[in-house]
Design a protein around this nucleic acid. Structure first.
Lengths: 187, 187
DNA sequence: TAGCTTTGTGAGCAGTTGCTTACTTAGCTT
DNA sequence: AAGCTAAGTAAGCAACTGCTCACAAAGCTA
């Protein structure tokens, strides 16, 4: 940005700045309470660009939500997914990462739920289900994911509650044991 | 309501109508996406009355959220709470009840989170914790409640997913077994 | 019946929001 | 350097939102 007010053009950087700003603000404030002006200001661009690049606020959310799930799965691989999900779940200095996005996807409109289902939940449930040899493996995988989601939400609601205050290792072990009971034999 | 347009006065009925309408609409659409006009129309009253009776939209949410948790606990008693929560969780023709309100409390502003913690979660966690003899009983109780919450949310996100489609009895048994593993000994 | 209080109403305020439009200008090609 | 395209901008639109205000009138009491 020169003093004259004109700004260097870099469409890829602009696009990225908007995505980054949106991700952070949607995570902090939820979809509805994040305005396009907020996002543009945080990205250091004019708000009209949000519409130029993403079409609408909803589509921006869709873009924000796509990929992170796939990225985690690619990083970690399905064998270590559960451990990794739980480790991240209870990590103290966690970045505002995937779990927060899961929560915030729920506060968004229809497109967010669709994206969540297609791009975020399905690969996770597939991987979690593969850990259970039971015929109803997918149900069990869904229940595990639901639990993780619930913990994220519980923490958001009660930042000073027991879950937030728990020793991460201990909490992780508690959940791991119960989840194993669920995924293996539950009868 | 007479043909002349004047309406019979019944402050208690008006108040109740607003609470009922708000409960339903908050559950259906979330706090932010439910407008005071929506609520007033659904209640069949003028929107100014919402402010007269409840002070603000937020305070209305607080009023909506107060009590249901206590009511369920009073109905059921703590001995049967877990079973009842799970039964209701998977009931097919469930009314839009307490669980939906839990979800929607999360989409509301700060007062909702406070009310949720004070009036809804705490009694539940107390009761669930009492079922575990462990020193970290409250943490375990919180984790159980988080799971229930997660299931509610998962179903909202994926109305056609495995959880929503599951045989209620079966799903209930799966969770009950895992929860027992969590509440009893987890080491 | 008059007077007062409480409940109900219509209208409107001020601010906000997602989005559009017309214009500017950076950056590239010829 | 001229011309064109694409990226960036300021301003503004129309609709919406929580909330207020002045008034109407139901309902009660003396």
């Amino acid at each position: 940005m020169t003093d004259g007010g004109a700004r260097r053009r870099d469409s890829a950087a602009t696009r990225r700045a908007l995505l980054d700003a949106a991700r952070k603000l949607f995570a902090d404030k939820g979809f509805d309470r994040t305005t396009v002006r907020d996002i543009a200001a945080a990205a250091g661009v004019n708000q009209a660009l949000l519409f130029r690049y993403f079409g609408s606020k909803e589509e921006l959310l869709g873009a924000v939500l796509s990929a992170p799930g796939a990225a985690l799965l690619a990083d970690v691989g399905s064998e270590r997914l559960l451990g990794e999900l739980l480790t991240r779940l209870f990590a103290e200095d966690r970045e505002r990462g995937h779990e927060a996005l899961l929560m915030l996807a729920l506060t968004g409109p229809g497109v967010a739920a669709d994206t969540l289902r297609r791009e975020v939940s399905e690969p996770f449930v597939d991987a979690l289900s593969a850990m259970s040899g039971e015929p109803d493996a997918r149900l069990r995988g869904q229940l595990v994911l639901a639990w993780i989601l619930g913990v994220v939400l519980s923490r958001a609601t009660s930042p000073t509650g027991e879950i937030a205050a728990a020793d991460p290792e201990h909490a992780r072990e508690l959940m791991l044991t119960a989840i194993r009971a669920l995924l293996e034999r539950a009868d």
